[in-house]
Amino acid sequence: MAAVEIRALHKRFGKVEAVKDLSFDVEAGRVTGFLGPNGAGKSTTLRALLGLVRPTSGTATFGGQRYDELEHPSSQVGAVLEDASFHPGRTGRNHLRVLAAAGEHPVSRVDEVLDAVGLNDAADRRVKGYSMGMRQRLAIAAALLGDPGVLVLDEPTNGLDPPGISWMRGILREQAAQGRAVLVSSHLLAEVAQSVDDVVIIAKGELRGRGTLAEVLGGDDGPATEVRSRDPEKLAHALESRGLRVERDGDVLLVPGATPEQVGEIAAEEQVAVLGLAPRMRSLEAAFFALTEETT
């Protein structure tokens, strides 16, 4: 059973259908990027998963259990939401102490998670004096308090500076490496591309693509190969005569739908010297736009 299971999830706010028949899984030990443009339904989906929004139909569960059915929710799921808010007059340490009390976690965990996110020095300052990056670190600390097996993060890099984004990427990879299932949403594709294993792409509340990063990067056109040859015209003719489409870019040929092995074998058969041969994956941006352009 997957760590997170979304099944035929549907959520309507009045006349607006925010999420439509959405289904996907999140596996343990992997970082799953939940991607889509603003207003795609990412936050609504995550909030339905966390029991903050009631689905119109369908289910969103952790190992088959709804969030509000979990016996010790904060020990099983840690969450960082986009608008993570804190009482401005309370210190970071106090905020965590309250959550530790509610989740029945030992008080010693407060210092451990503060240390893990590098907030020890600011722990006794009031949250209203925290920078955006410090607030995100505090939110991560709160999510880690119960040492949960699943992490759900909604746009965690919003408002972070480059070092903060880099730190967040490191945290995501580190948590997955420790066996946790990490579900992270973002509308900034470039920011998560380096840290995710799987991606789920939605637009206008509908699923547009899912799979490993490599699968989605490949897109619907399948593999593509870039080849550089001493005699590009002869090689292009050979490829086209075998039914392949060839796009020319100077002396570089792009062969959509062919693997490097296929192109290499054809070049060998035609005795054309090959100077370079490499797979070319579509950029995540391109895949993303291709998957969402029908509706945006």
Binding site: D68, P73, A102, A142
Partner: peptide, 18 residues
């Protein structure tokens, strides 16, 4: 009402979903 004013209701409900 302060839970709504400071938007801490979300983290409060996450800690206590019932």
């Amino acid at each position: 009402a302060g839970e709504w004013r400071h938007r801490t209701i979300t983290s409060t409900v996450l800690a206590a979903p019932n």
